[in-house]
Design a binder for these strands. Structure first.
Lengths: 248, 248
DNA sequence: GTCTATATACGGATAGAC
DNA sequence: GTCTATCCGTATATAGAC
């Protein structure tokens, strides 16, 4: 709304030095945009009219669902659990979605929309391959931290989706794999990285990044900060991709 | 039974060159021992007497459970699904466990017993740290391949367990983390590896290894062989732990 | 040991009052 | 918009025949 110049907008992509603190601010802005956007799309299914009410309750419902489902699984969560946790009655819940499965799909699609949009914005602008790699890596990692419950949920419940939705989630996963692989390919072409299997290394990067949101508690217990973790992954990958200095 | 000398037994640990093919033979031997052992332990709960029948049906039940649950989740699997898939009636099923939850726990404990025993046997004998690291890494990876459904199941359903069992599974996970960390610590002490955070790097190794059983289909589609994957992980980790050669 | 038939309860979903 | 009360299918688990 405020007339800000483009350059005023935080731009985490242009920096190899971006850390998590900077990233948070950037994401909080865009997350609301996306959230509101998705609600518009799904407006048909929602019987409640007043927008403020919808936003408030949907957030309650999403939060509660993620909390319960990430503890004992979405299937094991009953609508009565959800009713208790949100403070909304069964009837009220069902005015925000048509079925339990519908709720699952909405959550997944919301997650896809958020991640894809943020990820693209973060990686898009970067220039040199090595910077691009760092930008993509941090974008994914930091995103998974801000939205940890979403990432965890999406990963764990992906296989339980029915087919049209299952494919979409899979596609989203492949998409980020491809994004990494493409950066690697480009880097190899330019001679910045040593020859390697792009898809294999891209997969390894993703595996390392996903571990952060899959085992968040473990890392908290070990007192490992996210910026340190980002550095480890970068060091591992760059050590592999960057040729050891030739003897003088 | 046959009087074989100890040295005749396959010993995958002594080799940096061990590959997957060798490993399979080794594991097939021990897996049956363990299997039979666990059955002895749980004998009380099982109402069926004839041992051959028990073994045959338990294997059917375990296989079917893993197949169904890994597709749509253990909670979503009904006992009728299981009855259909095994060819056993509901009544027959319940003579092998007391409840659905009991089945879940039996599976998890069976998995813990198998992995722990094999892992220890594989790592125990190795000597130098760098060899030990390779042995442990391959032991875990190859094990997860031979018993992929078990590993996948255990990972995905861990959070759905009730507390006494949940703790045990967590402990098993920490155990292998510690095993790696201990090797790393020793290696650093001996000056073989550069200084690093043992637990952090151990976690990274595990993350890479687990990706193999979590996304087996992806790797199959990419035509990546397990021995190649082992090499990638080793290269990544050794590149990080081993100092770049000093300029001549 | 395994089957069929069934008791019992629980979960998803809705109707209709407020 | 939200609640309470309730319907109905389905899931776990068992009883008892063979």
């Amino acid at each position: 709304m405020a007339s800000t110049q483009p350059c005023e907008r935080l731009s985490p992509c242009n920096g190899t030095k971006m850390d998590y603190a900077e990233f948070i601010k950037y994401v909080d802005i865009t997350k609301e945009d996306i959230y509101r956007g998705t609600l518009e799309e799904n407006r048909e299914r929602i019987r409640v009219k007043k927008e403020a009410t919808v936003i408030k309750n949907l957030e309650k419902i999403f939060d509660a669902t993620l909390r319960i489902a990430n503890k004992k699984g979405f299937q094991a969560m009953t609508m009565r659990d959800l009713s208790l946790e949100t403070g909304l009655s069964m009837g009220a819940l069902y005015s925000y979605f048509t079925s339990k499965e519908d709720l699952l799909e909405t959550l997944q699609s919301q997650h896809r929309a958020m991640t894809r949009q943020i990820f693209e914005k973060c990686v898009g602008e970067a220039q040199a391959c090595s910077l691009k790699l760092r930008a993509a890596l941090k974008a994914y990692l930091f995103m998974s931290e801000v939205m940890q419950p979403w990432f965890f949920f999406s990963f764990m419940e992906a296989k339980n989706l029915a087919n049209p939705e299952r494919e979409k989630t899979l596609a989203g996963d492949i998409y980020s794999d491809m994004a990494f692989a493409e950066i690697l390919r480009q880097g190899q072409t330019e001679g910045v990285f040593v020859p390697h299997d792009h898809h294999l290394v891209a997969g390894a990067i993703k595996a390392l990044l996903q571990d952060w949101f899959l085992k968040r508690k473990k890392y908290a217990k070990l007192n490992i900060a996210i910026d340190d973790y980002a550095k480890l992954v970068l060091d591992l990958v760059e050590g592999y991709l960057t040729p050891p200095r030739a003897p003088a």
